[in-house]
Amino acid sequence: MRVLVVGTVPPPGGEAARALALAAADLAAEGNEIEVLSPEFSSAAHRQARLDGFRLPFQLAAAARDFDALVLRIQPGLPFRPDARRLTRAAILALIGLALRGYSQVTIYLDTPVPIPWGLGGRPTKGLWSRATTVVVENAEDRKNLLAVPGMDPDRVLIAPRQVPARSVISTGWSLEHEEEPWAEVLALVRSRAATTRKMMGAGGERAEPTSPFDAPAPPGMPVHAAGLVVLRKVLRRLRQR
């Protein structure tokens, strides 16, 4: 099966990113063909693209013909900004619901607190939950809240097994040899972890002149208008085939 995994994976890390990467690794170990699409330009993903707001449903729709299954992580900024208006939220959810129809299986991973503004319920979320084969939440509280949504099947809502605080590819952990006088060791760990991340981002391990994420250039990947063109090309191709 060809599976599209959408969300941030390490580096640089974070528990949820690690969980998604491990899920992708498990699927690959089962013999599936995996492609990871991440919004983070430093992620070890197959592709990177901006996935905020309306860009996510367009990307999902564009990729649907190439994949059988989808693993989607809903995380801060993907797709919702915390200040998303109610109407924008509804429109994005409706489009995601449509895009999910292109996949035979859909697994949704939800970060905690669940980054869906204006709550988990309501008509706009119906398309999302109804198309999800499985929803993976991080804790019992989130599961309870999700099951409060009318029509939610308890068998489809799972709690993610707690990840062993294993070190990720880049993590060296914080365990120290000299717990009583930790300063020099902690500082060395901070420097080395950051240097590793820097290297993986292509900065060669040297401290870089800081850049602001607020004015950072768009990460490489398919821009939203390009995704729109892909959809259009698909439609034209199908019309020609008929």
């Binding site: 640089p12 006088e181 902690v186 901070v190 972890r193 950051a194």
Partner: peptide
Amino acid sequence: SGGGLTYGDDLELGECLAF
């Protein structure tokens, strides 16, 4: 003092906060 962490860039700030 051996009591504070310093960061040279945003990545190191992130690691300090993660610590």
